[in-house]
Design a protein around this nucleic acid. Structure first.
Lengths: 210, 210
DNA sequence: ACCTGAACACCGTTCAAGT
DNA sequence: ACCTGAACACCGTTCAAGT
């Protein structure tokens, strides 16, 4: 049995393996992780402060490099790109979503993404209230859509009883991608609503100032 | 030590106590639950098939009596009431949300609520595709908003670094209820979008038929 | 029928011991 | 510095035993 002078483990390797495990099996435990790494469970604790720390590392891998939202042509484009990137990151690893959602974010890179979006909206002329509400809406949208990808509501599992929902499902176009369409439609509605509000605020601001 | 001939436990009592435990402490384990009921852990298994079954019972308590959506004046009213009821049920027990979300729904009463909504939309003249997408959007909205209530994104915890997000938060009106506003605004956008689509489908249908 | 204690197979974390 | 085995305090579930 070789005793390497080079360390076998690293935070990077541990988190990558954990993500891989979740992608394959939908879950991960430290014993499984250790087994997969060919190492004892306690070894892991030399590179990582515990399970929560691994999940945080996985979040960094999943959310990946920040969306470059600042260089968008206009704010609407930035909003759409931000939301698609956010949801797309989750969509690539649906099995990891539950673990990520039940734990508080501490990744600075991700907070920075929210900041970048806020900055775009600020520059576009949105009022502070509108910015806060808009980002909440977009956040909710992406998380709701991500959860739908992770574990679609049973409602969508067609069963045998007759019902309006079943009728709608069976009669829906065969090419309807329910999850993508709901996400894109809702995103479009939000953008339209924001544009409307911006125009309204601008005219109200002009009226108040003039 | 009295040995009652009347059973001490019941599924009802177990689930109620579990919900109460979650409301107070944010979690529940079988040992805690047994302790709170003044009973041994194994006793619980005489009334309930396991932990998942308890969570399902809690879901029934949280979602409570179905929203009477069928007797609404119009479809828009029904949609708004459905969504508010759904989110309101979660909002009353935010600590229970994580447990409910990570487990598949098997409560027939809740599936019936989705059905009722589908029926309202069907009668209003929405196409099957539109119904499926609309219910997905509303489901995502309520779950996203519920998660926001359960564990607001850290983004909203104002920290000390300067950022556009922090500026928006500190400059936002003091009476802004971020979570309620985002939910209501988004709901209004969805209803408006649906109304728009209904009008569009109707005119297209007329044109095609005539 | 209902409650119990003991046992089982897990889990995350710690820590003294090895090299 | 890094890896290990053993121990700890938990968890959900089962089951033979009591009344």
């Amino acid at each position: 049995m070789p005793r390497p002078h080079q360390p076998i483990l690293s935070r990077e390797l541990i988190c990558r393996t954990a993500l891989d495990l979740m992608d394959r099996t939908g879950r991960f435990t430290l014993p499984e992780l250790a087994h997969r790494l060919g190492v004892s469970v306690s070894s892991i604790y030399h590179h990582v402060s515990g399970r929560a720390d691994i999940v945080e590392g996985v979040r960094g891998l999943v959310m990946g490099p920040p969306a470059s939202v600042a260089d968008s042509a206009d704010w609407a484009d930035a909003v759409v790109r931000w939301a698609r990137t956010y949801r797309g990151a989750f969509a690539a690893h649906p099995a990891a979503i539950p673990a990520l959602l039940k734990q508080t974010v501490s990744e600075p890179a991700i907070l920075a993404q929210y900041d970048a979006l806020a900055e775009v909206l600020e520059k576009a002329g949105f009022a502070p209230d509108a910015i806060v509400v808009a980002i909440t809406m977009l956040d909710n949208l992406c998380i709701g859509a991500a959860l739908d990808l992770a574990a679609p509501s049973v409602v969508w599992a067609v069963d045998d009883r007759d019902s309006a929902l079943r009728r709608a499902l069976t009669q829906a176009g065969p090419k309807l991608n329910r999850q993508d369409r709901a996400f894109e439609d809702q995103l479009a509605l939000i953008v339209r609503g924001l544009a409307h509000q911006l125009a309204e605020d601008a005219s109200a601001g002009t009226a108040g100032a003039g």
